[in-house]
């Protein structure tokens, strides 16, 4: 399970560096993410751009993570692939999760994330730190996970 974690002052940015969120890795994903959301400052932004496939086990892990969010912490999924969106839609979980088109939109949203997603021009796009994240962050994210 490869995750890249970037802990910013106002949010945790988690990039899933896996093409598949499936039954073979749902458990390790869930355990690793539970640790991350417990320490996240207010917003957990999950970048799913690399996830091209998710089954109901992967969905179950996402739901468990959502339920494990501490009070006051939000989670947003960004760059959701059509195959992943299909699972969310079929199970009506698209009505439960906050889904934004681009990572910046999640951080820009104050009241409603949907509004931010539809108005990307308003997003300040403060994600430069993600590209320059030290490798230590990646190592930290991957640490302890198989």
């Amino acid at each position: 399970m490869n995750l890249t974690l970037d802990m910013l002052p106002d949010r945790a940015v988690v990039r899933i560096d896996e093409p598949r969120l499936d039954a073979a890795m749902a458990l390790s994903f869930k355990e690793r993410m539970r640790e991350i959301v417990a320490q996240a400052p207010g917003l957990v932004q999950v970048d799913m751009a690399q996830v091209q496939f998710m089954d109901s086990s992967g969905l179950g892990a996402l739901i468990a993570i959502h339920k494990a969010l501490p009070g006051g912490t939000r989670m947003a999924l960004s760059s959701v692939h059509a195959n992943v969106m299909r699972v969310l839609r079929l199970t009506r979980m698209d009505t439960v999760f906050t889904i934004v088109e681009r990572p910046e939109a999640a951080a820009a949203g104050t009241q409603g994330d949907d509004e931010a997603a539809q108005a990307p021009g308003r997003a300040p796009a403060p994600v430069a730190a993600r590209d320059t994240a030290p490798e230590a962050a990646a190592a930290q994210a991957a640490g302890g996970a198989s």
Partner: peptide, 14 residues
């Protein structure tokens, strides 16, 4: 409370 499972057959039938 959200269910964490039981979606497999929903997907298959859908």
């Amino acid at each position: 409370p959200l269910p964490e499972g039981g979606f497999g057959w929903l997907i298959i039938h859908g």
